[in-house]
Design a protein around this nucleic acid. Structure first.
Length: 239
DNA sequence: CTGGGGAAGGGGCCC
DNA sequence: AGGGCCCCTTCCCCA
């Protein structure tokens, strides 16, 4: 995952010291990021095409029903991008990993920006900015706008057409195409494309791992493993 | 079945 | 105020 690609100066902030794990080539990548906002209108679906049920289920980007309407405009999407070669199979034709929170959003994407936020009258004293695409609400417009990007997905991969809410998500995704793995483990030299994944990996080298079962004190490298452990009846470790 | 890797999403902080 | 980056978390898949 992307997340933490561009190495920064967070050492200055007394954060966990991953400095030795940093990107070896530290420089910013000149990748051809292309997230043309002109793609937004093409993601918009007229209200007549939205269905109430579309709000509830997982978004299946590979499903014609969930994205068909922009499939019809997919050609235009490509034209909207900067210098990209027109992708033959544009947005949303990619593979299996279509997880999306705030599900069903694509079916409710509306014309960008101006009317995106609305303030609840009831909370006017303490403004709450509601997303019109999902039930989420925020106390700042900035936070809401950031959230709205997860609906509009303005950052589009020129290789596969997959769309992302933020540029750095796209950068991380691009690494899955390029194979770039800037974050290497000092213990085993294994390399990762994502710093968070390296961090998780580092836990596997730790004798005492970060997540501990409160019942049996067994430790796990990942929260999800601890949760699995807990929900599986918390087997006691062999002695 | 469990542990681990890969990929992705979101909120928050800093500049 | 907005963008960039960081951290955390989650989900899926595979060995």
């Amino acid at each position: 995952m992307p997340r933490s690609f561009l190495v920064k100066k967070y050492f200055a902030k007394q954060k966990p010291n991953y400095s030795e794990l940093e990107c070896q080539n530290g420089e910013k990548r000149p990748q051809s990021l292309v997230w043309d906002l002109s793609v937004l209108p093409t993601l918009y679906l007229p209200a007549s095409q939205t269905e109430p049920s579309a709000n509830t289920g997982p978004l299946d980007l590979s499903s014609p029903s969930s994205l068909s309407s922009n499939a019809s405009s997919s050609g235009e999407e490509d034209e909207g991008r900067t210098s990209d070669p027109p992708s033959p199979e544009p947005v949303h034709t990619y593979g299996p990993r279509q997880r999306m929170k705030c599900t069903g959003v694509m079916a409710h994407i509306s014309p960008p920006e101006e009317e995106e936020e609305r303030e609840t009258p009831a909370t006017a004293a303490r403004p709450a900015f509601l997303c019109k695409h999902c039930p989420k609400e925020y106390t700042s417009l900035g936070a809401l706008k950031m959230h709205i990007r997860s609906h509009t997905l303005p950052c589009v991969c020129t290789t596969c057409g997959k769309a992302f809410s933020r540029p750095w998500l796209l950068r991380g995704h691009i690494r899955t195409h390029t194979g770039e793995r800037p974050f290497s483990c000092p213990h085993c030299n294994r390399a990762f494309a994502d710093r968070s994944n390296l961090r998780a990996h580092l836990q596997t080298h730790a004798e005492v791992k970060k997540y501990q079962c409160s019942v049996c004190s067994r430790t796990f490298s990942r929260m999800s493993l601890l949760q699995k452990h807990s929900s599986s009846g918390m087997k006691w470790p062999a002695l």
